[in-house]
């Protein structure tokens, strides 16, 4: 089983490994439905265009899920996420790629504060701040 990152190995300024998320249409639809979000703008291209969007877009619950995944991909299964605060920007449309990057902005005891950016070709889709207790 994957080992977890010890707080003793982490310091402010550390960079997290990057993660590229290819934004397929299947991903956007599957994640919307898996979060019980049936708003048409997340699965119906025709209605999405009618409502002024270029195409279907990723829903916010999924953005949150990717932020959570990004943290535990790095910190391991023993990481305890305490809070996730996201600011939303450019939509995630199918065909694009969201490039996730992050860095440790503060360490207090075992709790790391991480700043995360998920950028697509239009700009920043998400800027997140996560507090996570490391093992």
């Amino acid at each position: 089983m994957k080992t977890s990152l010890s707080h003793s190995k982490v310091k402010a300024g550390d960079e997290l490994p990057g993660l590229d998320i290819p934004l397929t249409r299947t991903l956007i639809v599957a994640t919307a439905i898996a979060t019980r979000d049936y708003q048409e703008v997340h699965h119906d291209p025709g209605l999405a265009v009618e409502r002024g969007s270029k195409d279907i877009i990723m829903n916010i619950l999924t953005t949150n899920s990717f932020v959570g995944r990004y943290i535990t991909d790095w910190a391991g299964p023993d990481a305890l996420i305490r809070s996730v605060k996201v600011r939303l920007g450019a939509p995630n449309y199918p065909g694009d790629t969201m490039k996730m990057t992050g860095s440790v902005t503060a360490m207090e005891g075992k709790v790391a504060t991480i700043a995360i950016r998920g950028a697509n070709s239009l700009g920043d889709h998400v800027n997140a701040t996560v507090e996570v207790e490391l093992s």
Binding site: L27, T31, I33, S65, D73
Partner: peptide, 13 residues
């Protein structure tokens, strides 16, 4: 399962 598979989250917990 539906969600972690869709987002590719392999955290085993």
């Amino acid at each position: 399962r539906h969600l972690v598979e869709a987002v590719g989250d392999e955290n085993p917990i």
